[in-house]
């Protein structure tokens, strides 16, 4: 546990030292959301109908932007090789790196999403659902994205490739989240979609670190 925390602390310091990168992702999210009212028209009722979908699509795209960097710098300077060689389980180190990725990209997006929801005239009843789906969905993206980041490590165009690979696989998150948000706007039951999101988070927190670690061991030796 101590080593796990040490890794999380190290990665957080690294993100803090180059805080610009984290801001860029958040900034992209805000700009992407801003484009929608300009593109589909500022009609409040239309925006209200689409607000959940817009925020979630932009959150997915911003996550994709930052995911290819999860292992890249450690891969470049060789510290990833050292992490693989240590006796400490690589799966836990991977979990730590995914956690830091979520804390520095998914969590800020979660924090700012209510502000953007206001600008998109989201139904007041949907705010809590938006936050719940973000809280359950964005960590899943970081975990599943970790697998993708390991797969594209060392390839050309890794940034675009990871979107091609991971976006089809995280479609369920988008479907369930937006379904829950829209249902809550109409005053309907949301628990089934939220439970499915929770199930995805639990499954991926068990399976994804294992798959990522296997991929890393396989690809870098």
């Amino acid at each position: 546990m101590k080593k796990f925390l040490a890794l999380v602390q190290r990665d957080l310091i690294l993100v803090y030292r180059s805080a610009n990168d984290a801001w860029v992702v958040l900034f992209f999210f805000v700009i992407a959301v801003t484009l929608f009212p300009l593109g589909i028209g500022p009609d409040p009722s239309v925006l209200q109908q689409f607000s959940g979908g817009i925020i979630w699509i932009c959150a997915l795209l911003s996550a994709m932007l930052s995911l290819d960097g999860v292992f890249q710098s450690d891969f470049d300077d060789g510290s990833l090789d050292q992490m693989i060689l240590t006796s400490y389980p690589l799966e836990l180190l991977v979990l730590g790196k995914c956690f830091v990725h979520w804390l520095t990209t998914g969590f800020p997006i979660l924090l700012i999403s209510p502000v953007l929801a206001t600008m998109l005239n989201m139904n007041l009843d949907s705010y809590s659902t938006l936050l719940i789906t973000m809280l359950l969905g964005t960590p899943t993206i970081s975990l599943m994205g970790g697998v993708g980041a390991a797969l594209v490590l060392g390839s050309r165009l890794s940034g675009v490739l990871i979107s091609l690979i991971i976006l089809p696989l995280i479609i369920p998150i988008l479907i369930f989240s937006v379904a829950a948000i829209n249902a809550s706007g109409e005053g309907m039951e949301i628990s089934s979609a939220v439970k499915l999101l929770g199930a995805l988070l639990i499954i991926s927190s068990v399976f994804c670190p294992w798959a990522t670690a296997a991929t890393l061991r396989n690809l870098t030796y």
């Binding site: 594209v152 390839s155 050309r156 165009l157 490739l161 091609l164 690809l219």
Partner: peptide, 15 residues
């Protein structure tokens, strides 16, 4: 896309 994205074909196959 992934299988052809590596300079080392062996890595592309594995990924």
């Amino acid at each position: 896309a992934l299988v052809n994205a590596f300079d080392d074909p062996e890595k592309g196959s594995k990924a």
